[in-house]
Simulated assay, not measured.
Amino acid sequence: MLALTAIHHIAIIASDYRKSKAFYCDVLGFELLAETYRAERDSWKGDLALKGRYVIELFSFPSPPQRPTQPESCGLRHLAFAVADIDEACAALQRAGVTYEPVRVDEFTLRRFTFFRDPDGLPLELYEQ
């Protein structure tokens, strides 16, 4: 068995790098740690942190293919972010013009959660701790 210690990062490919960078930083509160343009690939790479912890590599590539279906395609289903207060988090999404699903209750944990999407339709979840 491998001796894994943590998840290091999540890589996301955006169709519009600047729009997605603004969404993750200005709406969700990530901090841009570093940003690199790779001319040979015509690609941007942004390193995003949450509360000082490196979490997301945000990439752009010319003409990336769309996900085949939502959300039940094979592979990553969604990313979930923990929040202390789901109502406060939903209000912040609403102020930013982000549409989200009605808040539901997890039948097993009895915690409240909701889903919304990033600019490319990637399913994201807010899960109340």
Rank of each mutant, 00 (worst) to 15 (best):
K51Y: 08
K51W: 03
K51E: 12
K51I: 02
G52K: 12
R53K: 15
Y54I: 01
Y54F: 15
V55Y: 03
V55F: 06
I56Q: 04
F59V: 03
F59T: 02
P62C: 10
P62R: 10
P62L: 12
S63I: 03
P64D: 03
P64N: 11
P64W: 08
P65I: 09
Q66Y: 08
Q66D: 12
P68C: 09
Q70L: 15
C74M: 14
G75I: 07
G75V: 07
G75E: 04
L76W: 09
L76N: 05
R77F: 13
R77A: 14
H78I: 06
L79S: 07
A80I: 00
A80E: 01
F81W: 07
F81G: 03
A82Q: 13
A82T: 13
V83H: 04
V83F: 01
A84C: 03
A84M: 03
I86E: 02
D87Y: 01
E88R: 10
E88S: 13
E88D: 13
A89V: 01
A89R: 00
A89K: 01
C90V: 09
A91P: 05
A91Y: 05
A92E: 06
A92M: 09
A92T: 02
A92R: 08
L93C: 05
A96G: 05
A96H: 11
A96V: 05
G97P: 00
G97S: 07
V98G: 02
V98R: 06
V98T: 05
T99L: 10
T99R: 08
Y100Q: 10
E101N: 14
V103L: 04
V103I: 14
R104I: 00
R104M: 04
V105W: 05
D106N: 15
D106V: 02
E107H: 13
F108R: 13
F108H: 08
T109K: 05
L110R: 14
L110W: 11
R111E: 05
R111C: 06
R112N: 05
F113A: 08
F113S: 03
F113M: 12
F115T: 02
F115W: 06
F115M: 12
F116H: 04
